[in-house]
């Protein structure tokens, strides 16, 4: 009797294990089908000419240069804006003793903002940055909008990283007569840095793939020039891909596939950098 119930429990365990394995592979499998499909369509179109040409009416001549450089511009500016603001906010919320309800209020708002759909940020960007502040459909307006979008993610990731720093490190720094700033600067931030950077880069890769808010603020879909300054109009990879994919000609769908490969490579490179930074910083600490 006893044995039978034990066997039953083992059976349930095995079934659960199999279900988990199956569902994990299902996700991976779908991803591989996608990758396979995209590469089969796009690889043939992927060459230097594709990387070095502007969009064109003719699929043979179409290239991704303006979108790729637009993405680089946008991400550089987004990083410049969002990293200092996000990390500073995280330090304020995590390292300084809580006064009043204000920081609690900020915390709740940040958690909520992380869940706001990106199109809403687009509307906000359109009203505030494009129209009210008069930046037009420029890289600056796009970067500010993107910064708003990823700030909650950066703040939450940076707070997690700061929270993971053992309290004992802060205490021993304080006990040596360090001021708050000296403690944060020399002991807490170096330990939290790998975590913060990983969070930042993951947030930035989200910004790379984001389309909706940029369409909302009016990033152009057909850009036959390279942006030369922060006030220039621009396009980015996902918008260009969307544009090609919505054309009726079959060749353009294949061009879109090639664009997707470029986008994926950019994302993989950013994740690679995140992994590399984390290893580098962790080795330096040991």
């Amino acid at each position: 009797m006893k044995n039978q119930s034990l066997r039953q429990r083992y059976a349930i365990g095995r079934i659960f294990h199999l279900v988990c394995v199956g569902l994990t592979w299902l996700g991976v499998f779908v991803l591989f089908i996608l990758l396979f499909h995209v590469s089969r369509e796009g690889v043939a179109w992927l060459d230097l000419q594709f990387l070095d040409s502007f969009p064109s009416r003719f699929p043979q001549k179409a290239g991704i240069k303006s979108a790729l450089l637009g993405t680089v511009w946008l991400i550089s500016f987004t990083a410049t804006i969002s990293i200092p603001v996000g990390v500073a906010a995280a330090i304020y919320l995590e390292e300084y003793p809580k006064r009043s309800g204000i920081s609690h209020f900020i915390e709740i708002n940040i958690a909520n903002l992380a869940g706001v759909p990106s199109i809403v940020y687009g509307i906000l960007g359109l009203v505030i940055f494009v129209r009210f502040m008069g930046f037009g459909r420029s890289i600056v307006a796009g970067s500010l909008t993107m910064s708003l979008l990823i700030l909650p993610v950066i703040i939450i990731a940076a707070r997690e990283a700061l929270r993971a720093v053992p309290t004992s490190i802060r205490q021993s720094a304080f006990a040596l007569g360090a001021t708050h700033w000296q403690t944060i600067r020399s002991q807490v931030l170096p330990v939290a840095l790998p975590g913060i950077l990983t969070g930042v880069i993951l947030a930035l890769s989200r910004a790379v793939g984001e389309t909706a808010p940029l369409i909302m603020i009016g990033a152009l879909t057909y850009v036959a020039f390279v942006p030369e300054g922060p006030m220039d109009p621009f396009t980015v990879l996902p918008i260009q891909i969307f544009n090609w994919a919505s054309r009726p000609q079959d060749e353009f769908h294949q061009v879109a596939a090639a664009g997707i490969i470029v986008l994926l490579v950019v994302l993989l490179m950013m994740n690679g950098v995140a992994i590399w930074i984390r290893h580098w910083a962790e080795r330096r600490q040991r």
Binding site: S168, S172, A173, A175, L176, G177, A178, Q187, Q285
Partner: peptide, 29 residues
């Protein structure tokens, strides 16, 4: 805290070199 030092229950050196652990206090002060 500069005049009255403290040693804690669990050894809690900074995740830095031995030298930097000792040198940090004087150098920031």
């Amino acid at each position: 805290r500069r005049r009255i030092g403290m040693v804690f229950q669990k050894p809690n050196p900074f995740p830095k070199s031995i030298f930097q652990n000792v040198a940090w206090g004087p150098s920031i002060n």
